[in-house]
Every structure is written in structure tokens, then in C-alpha cells.
């Protein structure tokens, strides 16, 4: 493996890890945003009912 092989490996792994981390976080953020709006609606509805 030449020097560029090592460079590619290092940059590749770094890119995959960071992008992967970012991607997982985005997915979770979106999921939570959806859940939160549903929960907020329920909470507001319960307050009105009470």
C-alpha cells in the first residue's frame, strides 16, 4: 500500500465516521421533532380537557 493508500484510508474512515454520526443525528432529530409535536399537541389537549 503506497502513501496514498494510507491517506485514502485515514480520510475515508474520518469522512465515513463523521458523516455517519451526522446522519444518525439528523435522523434522530427529525424523529424527535415529530414526536415532540405530537406530544405537545396531546399535552395541550389534555390541559384543555382538564
Amino acid at each position: 500500500m503506497g502513501p496514498w493508500g494510507y491517506i485514502a484510508a485515514a480520510y475515508g474512515i474520518a469522512a465515513v465516521v463523521l458523516l455517519g454520526y451526522h446522519l444518525v443525528m439528523s435522523v434522530r432529530l427529525r424523529a424527535f421533532a415529530r414526536r415532540l409535536s405530537a406530544l405537545r399537541a396531546t399535552a395541550a389537549w389534555m390541559r384543555r380537557a382538564a
Binding site: 415532540l36 406530544l39 396531546t42
Partner: peptide, 8 residues
């Protein structure tokens, strides 16, 4: 979300 879930 956790806090709201505890409420509902």
C-alpha cells in the same frame, strides 16, 4: 419529550 411523556 421525556418530560411530556411523563405528563401524559
Amino acid at each position: 419529550a421525556e418530560a411530556l411523556e411523563a405528563l401524559t
